[in-house]
Design a protein around this nucleic acid. Sequence first.
RNA 1: GGCUCCGUAGCCAAGUGGCUAAGGCAGCGGAUUGCAAAUCCGCCAUCGUCGGUUCGACUCCGACCGGAGCCUCCA
Length: 529
Amino acid sequence: MSTNDATTPPAEAAGLPAIQVYNTLSREKEPMVTVQPGRVGMYLCGPTVYKPSHIGHMVGPVIFDTVKRHLSYSGWQVTWVVNITDVDDKLIAESSRRGISMTALAEEMTADYLENLAALGVTSIDEMPKATDHIDTIISFIEGLISKGFAYASDGDVYFDVQKDADYGKLTNRSVDAMQGEGGSTADRKRSAADFALWKKAKDGEPSWDSPWGPGRPGWHIECSAMSEAILGNHFDIHGGGLDLVFPHHENEIAQSESLHGCPMASYWMHNGLMQASGASGKVGGRPRDADDGEAASVEAQTAAKISKSTGAEPFKQLLARHEPEAIRMLLLSTHYRSPIHFGEEPLAESGRALEAFRRLFARSERISGTSFYNLPCRTRREGDTQIAAAGDEAAALRTRFLAAMDDDFNTAVAIASLFDYVRVVNKYIDQHQLEATKPEAELARLAALMRTLRELTGVLGLFLEAPQADGGADEALVAGLMELVIEIRANARKAKDFATADLVRDRLGSLSIVLEDRADGTGWSRKA
RNA sequence: GGCUCCGUAGCCAAGUGGCUAAGGCAGCGGAUUGCAAAUCCGCCAUCGUCGGUUCGACUCCGACCGGAGCCUCCA
């Protein structure tokens, strides 16, 4: 409970913690200094909505949702924007293949995307602008670039002139002349190969918008420059995306925005590692590249490849049918966000098992206190840290460790590790004070405080936000009733020292994936994960 | 070929120029239990290879081996 003392200083600026952020631009961690004190503007490149989203699409949102949670919790006012790309060559191709309008396709796939985000607890996005809602913004952005001499129209297309941009390539350390650029049919309309399209002339029958250069549609990169400016301003704080977007997408965004505005587009460029399809049989996709040489020392050179290039990229909905979203979120956060994540059935199952340690503690504490973890009131702001951290208190030290990890470039892996330690501390507390047998008031209050802090911290990670859905349907009550009956009968057998019967019951339930636990305060049951 | 990055225990995965190299899964031993389960306690790595810098490196530098990403629209 935050004892809200009246001595809180009026200005919050001094109270904000120091956060380190790894910046792709400088390739090092930098202290976070925001454009406006106390505020953070954050932009994440969202999906092109032409087919159902897969696990790879979820990585960025989960990570940046966690980033936002931590920054908000730490006292910043964060505005987070994720764009929806709803006009693009792939949308045109897919909608014509299916015989529906591009708009209908985009709406269908956007809905799919949103449902998936919600399942994973990604709830903190403030705005999701669509490219097609910002065509005017985009056109005037392009006009601005042309009038400043950074872009040129060419036969209905408009291209960015890379030669005019002195520091082009600074994000990815590339030189202009080493680049191929988008080739093919448009090559001859460009001044140099590395130039990229800001506006594309429409072919017959393609969706198009009127523009000073004739009917057409925006190029790939321009929408992010235009929409981030419209919502977050010329210079905002954090721009994120997958590592595969660094080039050309983000490089080109920088070229467009900084050429037009003459100031940095974003202070920090954060890129998440890519999901690797690994391990599990057959799902990996990509052909086993056979170097036909004789023997390889390692019998199986395990080929990993990013999800989006593998056949393992099943629709996220299907994945959700097999794994609970909490386990997926846990898996995504248990690796540092800049590292590749090895994805597969086994890692997923393992992170599901890891989750159980938390759930068992929640259940245990609820049995003792009568209050569900999910209903605990807890602090949602971290101000006043120092009051919590009573010296020598193991739990407080772990909370400090958790926060230090998050402050250090959002190190969720270390944060989670400290949470596992935290769970152990609470279990030990319950053991030592025998809270399941006797319930002294002071210790119960202490337990409640420990659990509130745990809820506070898991909330920063976006984990355990809500009680898991009871998956059973109408039979749920029936099963519960039957289990109560079975347990009662077995208890009688145990009382009569008829352990053969008691064990038979437990074994048979075990083969039905039901686990019995004989505790001091009675017998509980649960389904095996 | 150019540009990034990674290689830590059976598996997954943090981290550091010198102090006991986090945490999870699996495994082993103990406490507890009628027996289990759960919980707690304990055990389980010298950090890809070879050189170099340094009083000292797993942490810095170089080479090599292996893996990943980008160099036309993939988050």
